[in-house]
Design a protein around this nucleic acid. Structure first.
Ligand SMILES: Nc1ncnc2c1ncn2[C@H]1C[C@H](O)[C@@H](COP(=O)(O)OP(=O)(O)OP(=O)(O)O)O1
Ligand SMILES: [Mg+2]
Ligand SMILES: [Mg+2]
Length: 664
DNA sequence: CGGATCGAC
DNA sequence: CTATGTCGATCCG
């Protein structure tokens, strides 16, 4: 049961299966597994993994961090026990063949939606931060080093260091135990940002709508490019990798597949990590075979906790998803059958597009320091955080309406957060709100303080409708972007009449600007009392304009793209891609529904139990309107009275008791 | 809607 | 002795 909120060392990536098998049921083994995360790469390492885990456990023992992890691990374990108990009860009564039939039907329908027409490429730079560091300091080449600090956490590590078990997210001192000769190199975020900009610029040449994900990776749809230039996807991708290498001297790995996120292309790019390419065969059967052997943990979105949950019901590889489909149907609420079946089939979205500014939902800043309880000193930390946050908000061009305070006790546990509403923009506002929230919690010993603003207002967005004289501070290609919900604000135009607008703007990435910042050190040592003046430390993960990219594909924006992708759009229209918009097709009864997600789920629940009860035969006939055009889509502008305008039908909070009774 | 969890880079 | 920072999604009540 590995778990824990705080980031564990990067695991994922491991082939040589999870060695321990005998100890697997052992509590210690699970905790150990979580602390370390499977690592190892190719063969060779398998043997060492147990030893590595052991050393990590030894080094961790006794620390508060470790104790907190252990606590979480136990919580998860009991959660799983409860889940299994429920499953056993349900399975005892269930008509398994029927449940499997339900899943099989969904599988058949999903298979029918498979779209192999697009060439989606995922590009990911190799050990990015580490590679940039080697670029700037060639003497590091061939050495085992980590980027970060002893006493801090590592952002990443060189491949030589990885061979010894060192990973992203690993505490420096733990890494040192694994690799006594490990070299520590400090982060240079603005450099990474700069290089990232170069890479992204190259990628855009192959696909304007290229979709960056973080600083070192991106998705591209090269279908048009290949067509126009009469080259194969492999050639195109190799050209891309060559261009990146020639222009930046860095290597990247790539994956080519018919869909991206959550699936194939991304998985393929990791297939042969160091400087390689992997293209999946564009054939339904080949894809299904490819998926079969994959450990579910390799699926983006499946982390330690989910892995544990699935493993508890016998699902370790994607093939097991099929074997255990009855359980998935039965406990859909917990296991999301639909998503899992898509994974089993290797299906996924093939929509690639950049992230619009309006998609940002929050801006925050937080900081870890050696635990303190003195209110005055805590307040200083709050001031720092507030100041940094104001700078970021200014730089990014947002103001916000709600602020939440984040705290972490010296025990690592009990992260707590509160929030307040009120228009926020400047430092003093952030600080005073933060102080209010903090005061309410105070007698505490803290190791972290953070502030985050949500309910953002985009200060650079063209004024809704009428005024938009000011230069385009945004994407040069933005056209008549879809208007959002106009200002439904009650509060009339905040301060800032046009004047202040466009303060600095500078545009996207702060491209190597004269950033003399010496601010927070993400991966660096947590707060060095005195001295510690790293004149260079440009440390600070800049949140460049575009970078987040949630799994959701069905994003708002209408496609304004001039270039058209042949079928693509029409093809994918076949199925509701993911299921988020408004129209859905029930996977059980195939009816088209006009409803939101929860409405759809409710319908499916109803539909499942219905069809089970009434024998498959009658399935078609009865379908009283469910999934009806879902009531009013009230935008709920009325916050005045009881904000409960929605009748919200009966909520069967009953978990999975749907198909509980067996057929009779 | 706020808070806690999970996941990712 | 020692364990980051930033952000999105989802579920629960
Ligand atoms: N947990 C983390 N905390 C802070 N920074 C991180 C973390 N994980 C990754 N990063 C940063 C450093 C990485 O170089 C960069 C890109 O991540 P990622 O692509 O996952 O690994 P990587 O590029 O270092 O190695 P790989 O060759 O496996 O891709 O993001
Ligand atoms: Mg990478
Ligand atoms: Mg990456």
């Amino acid at each position: 049961m590995s778990a824990s909120t705080s980031g564990k060392p990067d695991s994922k990536r491991d082939e040589t299966k999870t060695t321990n098998r005998v100890n697997d049921t052992n509590k210690d083994a699970s905790l150990l597994h979580r602390l370390a995360g499977p690592s190892s790469m190719k063969a060779g390492l398998a043997l060492d993994q147990l030893e590595i885990n052991k050393r990590i456990a030894e080094a961790s023992k006794g620390s508060k961090y470790y104790e907190n992890e252990r606590r979480k691990d136990e919580e998860l374990a009991s959660k799983i026990n409860a889940l299994l108990k429920q499953r056993d009860e349900l399975m005892a009564m269930a008509d398994i063949p029927r449940l499997e039939a339900v899943a099989d039907k969904v599988i058949a329908e999903l298979e029918a939606t498979r779209d192999l027409s697009q060439y989606i490429v995922h590009i990911d730079m190799d050990s990015f931060y580490a590679s940039v560091e080697m670029l700037d300091n060639p003497s590091l080449v061939g050495k085992a080093f980590g980027v970060g600090s002893l006493g801090g956490v590592l952002s990443t590590a060189s491949y030589e260091a990885r061979k010894l078990g060192v990973r992203s997210g690993m505490a420096g001192h733990i890494a040192k135990k694994l690799a006594p000769d490990l070299i520590f190199v400090t982060n240079h975020f603005s450099r990474y940002s700069e290089v990232s900009g170069q890479v992204m610029t190259i990628l855009r040449r192959y696909d304007e709508t290229m979709n960056p994900v973080g600083v070192d990776e991106a998705y591209l749809n090269i279908t048009d490019y290949c067509e126009a230039n009469k080259i194969t996807p492999e050639e195109c991708t190799e050209n891309i990798r060559k261009a990146i290498f020639q222009e930046t001297k860095l290597t990247a790995s790539a994956g080519i597949a018919p869909n991206k996120r959550k699936m194939l292309a991304k998985i393929c790019s990791e297939r042969n990590k160091p400087n390689g390419l992997f293209k999946l065969e564009f054939d339904a059967q080949a894809i299904r075979d490819f998926m079969k052997g994959l450990p579910i943990r390799r699926i983006p979105g499946v982390g330690r906790v989910t892995e544990r949950l699935l493993e508890s019901v016998g699902i370790k590889t994607c093939e097991d998803i099929y074997t255990q489909r009855a359980t998935l149907v039965l406990m859909d609420k917990h296991f999301h059958m639909h998503d899992k079946l898509e994974i089993y089939l290797g299906l996924g979205s093939n929509v690639v597009r950049p992230w619009p500014r309006e998609a940002r939902k929050s801006v925050g800043s937080e900081r870890t320091f050696h635990a303190i309880s003195d209110p005055a000193r805590i307040n200083e930390k709050l001031e720092q955080v507030a100041k940094e946050l104001e700078e970021d908000m200014e730089r990014l061009g947002y103001s916000g309406h709600t602020v939440t305070l984040k705290l972490k006790l010296d025990t690592f546990e009990g992260n707590r957060a509160k929030s307040v509403h009120r228009p926020i923009r400047k430092y003093n506002e952030l600080l005073s709100v933060g102080q209010e929230l903090l005061a309410h919690e105070l007698p505490l010993k803290l190791r972290l303080l953070g502030l985050r603003v949500t309910n953002l207002k985009d200060l650079r967005a063209q004024e809704s409708g009428i005024k938009r004289f000011f230069g385009q501070t945004d994407d040069p290609n933005t056209r008549p972007l879809k208007r959002r919900k106009i200002s439904n604000d009650k509060e009339v135009n905040t301060t800032v009449v046009g004047s202040i607008l466009i303060s600095d703007d500078e545009d996207d990435v702060d491209a190597g600007t004269s950033r003399k910042d010496l601010k927070r050190a993400a991966t660096a040592t947590p707060e060095r009392p005195r001295s510690q003046i790293l004149p260079d430390a440009d440390v600070a993960p800049r949140a460049s304009s575009h970078e987040p990219m949630p799994s959701q594909d069905t994003s708002p924006l209408p496609s304004k793209r001039a270039k058209t992708r042949p079928d693509h759009s029409s093809t994918s229209r076949k199925k509701p891609d993911e299921l988020r918009s408004e129209q859905h097709i029930c996977p059980i009864c195939s009816k088209t529904l006009q409803t939101d997600n929860t409405g759809l789920n409710e319908h499916i629940d109803w539909c499942l139990s219905r069809s089970a009860i009434l024998e498959a035969s009658a399935s078609e006939t009865l379908n009283a309107g469910h999934g009806k055009p879902v009531s009013t889509q009230n935008k709920a502008i009325s916050k005045a009275g009881g904000s409960k305008p929605k009748p919200k039908a009966t909520q069967h909070s009953k978990p999975d008791i749907r198909l509980a009774w067996k057929q009779l």
